[in-house]
Amino acid sequence: MACAPTSDLIWLGPLRQGDGPLQLPLAVESVAAGFPSPADDYVEAAIDLNGILMPRPSSTFLMRVDGDAMRGDGIHHGDLLVVDRSVAPRSGSTVVAVHEGRFVLRRLEGRPAQWCLVASDATTAAIALQGEDPDLLIWGVVIHAVHHLCTPLSGSRRRGAVAGGSPEALGVEP
């Protein structure tokens, strides 16, 4: 379902403008997810989303989700993932792995030498990581997922379209 167009929307542009970060206003008060409270009408500070979402830019990649295997963990088709390759995976981490030459998104469970990649849906089989498997590699750890609440009206991705290219395009050997 797409949101109705409105003339009140303002495009903020890219997250970086020129050489410096784009500072966005941060409201003083948090938004209530339950019973709403009156909002203060001023700004606390400015924040740079790049600094918050990508604390280590040289090891961080953005990827789109293609499929619904992790819907139970709140990650949906079309969401944008922030994947950090410098973060050490641990049990419970959501990871991007390379399996049979393709990227897969799963939750890492178990312990070293007995790792397992698990989807949050009931229909996708787990992938056991036993021994040295050349066809399977934990590529990076998901540190943020940007979940879309409103589907864009134009320029939206088609379901099933190539979302982030191949592992080879990001420097991963098949």
Rank of each mutant, 00 (worst) to 15 (best):
M1H: 09
M1W: 09
C3I: 11
P5V: 08
S7D: 15
D8Q: 13
L9W: 14
I10W: 02
G13F: 01
L15V: 09
R16F: 00
R16M: 07
R16N: 10
G18M: 05
G20F: 08
P21F: 12
L22W: 01
L24W: 01
L24P: 00
L26A: 12
L26S: 07
L26Q: 15
A27H: 12
G34M: 10
F35N: 11
P36C: 01
P38V: 13
A39V: 13
V43E: 11
E44Y: 01
A45I: 02
A46E: 11
I47C: 07
I47L: 12
G51F: 01
I52D: 05
I52L: 15
L53T: 09
L53S: 06
L53P: 09
M54P: 03
P55G: 03
S58E: 15
S58D: 13
S58C: 07
S58Y: 09
S59M: 10
S59Y: 05
L62D: 01
M63W: 00
D66A: 10
D68R: 13
D68L: 12
A69W: 03
A69P: 04
A69M: 04
M70Y: 06
R71F: 08
G72E: 11
G72S: 09
G72W: 12
D73I: 02
G74E: 06
G74F: 06
I75R: 03
H76K: 06
D79V: 10
L81C: 02
V82H: 02
V83D: 00
V83C: 03
S86F: 02
S86R: 13
V87F: 04
V87G: 01
A88D: 14
P89M: 07
P89H: 10
R90Y: 06
G92F: 06
G92I: 12
G92H: 09
G92T: 06
G92N: 07
S93H: 14
T94C: 00
V96W: 02
V96C: 02
H99G: 02
E100L: 13
V104S: 01
R106A: 04
R106P: 08
L108A: 08
R111W: 14
P112T: 08
Q114N: 13
W115N: 08
W115M: 10
W115A: 12
C116H: 03
S120N: 07
D121G: 07
D121I: 10
T123V: 13
T123S: 14
T123K: 08
A125N: 09
A125Y: 02
A126E: 14
I127V: 15
A128I: 09
A128C: 07
G131T: 04
G131V: 05
G131N: 04
G131A: 05
E132W: 06
D135I: 03
L137Q: 15
L137T: 05
I138V: 15
V141T: 12
V142K: 03
H144K: 04
A145V: 03
H148V: 11
C150D: 12
P152Y: 02
S154F: 12
S154K: 05
G155V: 14
G155E: 08
G155M: 13
S156I: 02
S156R: 14
S156P: 01
R157Q: 08
R159P: 03
G165V: 00
G165N: 03
P167I: 09
P167M: 09
E168T: 10
L170A: 15
G171S: 05
V172R: 07
E173R: 15
P174L: 15
